[in-house]
Simulated assay, not measured.
Amino acid sequence: MEADMLDIENRAQLPLTSAGAGCGCCSSESSSAPVTSGAVEFTVEGLTCGHCVQRVEKAVAAIEGVEAATVELVPGGRSRLIIGGRATRAAVRGAVTSAGYTLSND
Score class of each variant (00 low, 15 high):
69 A>Y: 01
62 A>F: 11
75 P>N: 10
47 L>W: 03
60 V>C: 04
84 G>Y: 06
66 V>D: 04
80 R>S: 12
78 R>K: 15
69 A>E: 04
58 K>S: 14
49 C>E: 08
63 I>T: 13
54 Q>G: 10
79 S>Y: 03
68 A>W: 07
78 R>D: 12
87 A>N: 02
64 E>Q: 14
62 A>W: 09
72 E>Y: 12
72 E>L: 13
56 V>Y: 05
73 L>R: 10
81 L>V: 03
66 V>T: 11
84 G>L: 02
61 A>Y: 05
86 R>F: 11
72 E>N: 15
59 A>R: 07
69 A>Q: 04
76 G>P: 00
51 H>D: 10
79 S>A: 12
59 A>I: 07
70 T>R: 12
48 T>W: 04
85 G>A: 10
73 L>D: 01
77 G>M: 12
80 R>T: 13
70 T>M: 09
59 A>F: 01
84 G>I: 01
84 G>C: 02
80 R>Y: 09
59 A>Y: 02
78 R>E: 13
74 V>K: 00
70 T>P: 03
58 K>W: 06
56 V>I: 05
52 C>A: 12
47 L>G: 01
74 V>Q: 02
65 G>N: 13
59 A>D: 04
84 G>N: 06
60 V>N: 01
83 I>L: 14
53 V>D: 02
61 A>R: 05
80 R>K: 14
76 G>C: 08
52 C>S: 12
65 G>Q: 09
60 V>K: 01
52 C>R: 01
88 T>W: 10
63 I>E: 08
78 R>L: 08
85 G>N: 13
73 L>F: 09
84 G>S: 13
71 V>E: 00
68 A>Y: 05
66 V>P: 05
74 V>G: 00
56 V>R: 03
72 E>Q: 12
87 A>I: 03
57 E>F: 02
48 T>K: 08
60 V>S: 01
81 L>Y: 01
62 A>Y: 14
61 A>V: 07
83 I>S: 03
77 G>A: 15
51 H>E: 11
86 R>G: 11
57 E>V: 05
